[in-house]
Computed example of a mutant assay.
Amino acid sequence: MADGLAAGGVGTAHARPCTVDPMGLLADLVADGEVVVLSGAGLSTESGIPDYRGVNGRLRRSQPMTYQTFIGSAAARRRYWARSHLGWRHMAEARPNAGHHAVAELQRRGLVAGIITQNVDGLHQAAGARDVIELHGSLSRVRCLGCGERTPREVLDRRLREANPGWTARAGAVNPDGDVELSDEEIAGFRVVDCASCGGVLKPDVVFFGENVPRDRVAACLELAERAGLLLVLGSSLAVMSGYRLVRHAADHGIPIAIINQGPTRGDAHALVTIDARLGSALPRLLARLDAAW
């Protein structure tokens, strides 16, 4: 896909066409360093993890679990854990793609000052990135709503296997939040386990739809955004307020913003550069431009 560009003053209400080379302009901005990356689901689609709102998004076909539903219904928790028990295996097998590796390489070169991800898949870290702020948490951990204890997902996976030795459900389509489609009959035969320490309700250590991001995490992200030399948005439509808030915050502080995403985003009007492209090809091209300049 050909790169597209919309350029204008930072924080302007309307972007306007520009004739400069967008990838070249982005390379110049990144070369100055102090880049803060904000990544979304579009960065992980090339690793086999679908998104809700992208080109092939499933938001209309699969409604994600909400915090209120999970907390309020034992039946909903059984449905979630049955579906997630199978879907977790798919997520655990996912591997970082060229886009993740490019972000890690930019950090290794000292150009990236911080990485904030809306993703819950851990692929930034698997690619070698350090000190990643997981805005929406991680599916690799489980939290007890009673005592607050956090345990590795592998521990829960083992306990669920032991509690459901004869359960033979097969995974259908994998959803963006790591669960799969299952029939009511398959879900009804699934047994949920509780916290091994206190017997409390277990929840994945992620921020569900309808749940607030912890305040200290939000504060850390806002501080990164306002100290950035460039806020680089990768693979996010910015439809969720937790991500869009960071773009608006950066714009309010006069921080230049660049966006690479397939399709338009809610933050385009604030961006100095927008590139419509797949991350797995665009980010290696960015590295090549930086190499050529050096």
Rank of each mutant, 00 (worst) to 15 (best):
R95K: 13
R78F: 05
R95H: 01
E186L: 06
R53L: 02
D131F: 04
L38R: 04
H253L: 05
R215A: 15
G243W: 01
A251P: 00
S73H: 10
G87W: 04
L145Q: 06
L238K: 02
D194F: 03
N212I: 08
S183C: 08
L139S: 11
L26D: 06
H85A: 15
I275D: 01
G229H: 07
L230K: 08
V233F: 00
A102E: 09
L135V: 11
G189P: 01
A188G: 05
S73K: 11
V240G: 00
P165T: 10
V20F: 14
G263I: 12
G172V: 12
A74R: 11
I260R: 02
V30H: 02
P96Q: 08
G57M: 06
R248A: 09
H85N: 10
D268F: 09
L231K: 04
I133W: 02
D276K: 07
A250L: 05
A173S: 09
G110Y: 06
C195A: 11
R79C: 08
R285K: 14
T151K: 13
D268V: 13
A225E: 04
L246E: 02
G9H: 13
I259F: 00
L290P: 00
G99L: 07
T168D: 11
N56H: 15
L287Y: 04
L222M: 09
I187R: 03
E46K: 06
E185P: 01
C147E: 06
I255Q: 00
H124P: 02
G99Q: 06
L156A: 05
H90L: 12
W88Q: 12
W167N: 06
A102K: 05
L43S: 05
T117R: 06
V240M: 01
A225N: 03
A282Q: 04
S183L: 14
C147V: 08
S237N: 09
A113D: 08
V112G: 02
A292T: 12
G110E: 10
A7S: 14
D268H: 12
A41V: 09
D291F: 06
G48C: 09
D194R: 15
G72F: 11
A82Q: 10
D184C: 04
H100A: 08
G146P: 03
V142E: 03
V193C: 05
G235T: 14
I49R: 00
Q68E: 14
G254R: 13
R170I: 07
L224D: 03
L182S: 06
R161Q: 13
L145D: 06
D184H: 12
H270E: 11
W81R: 09
P176K: 08
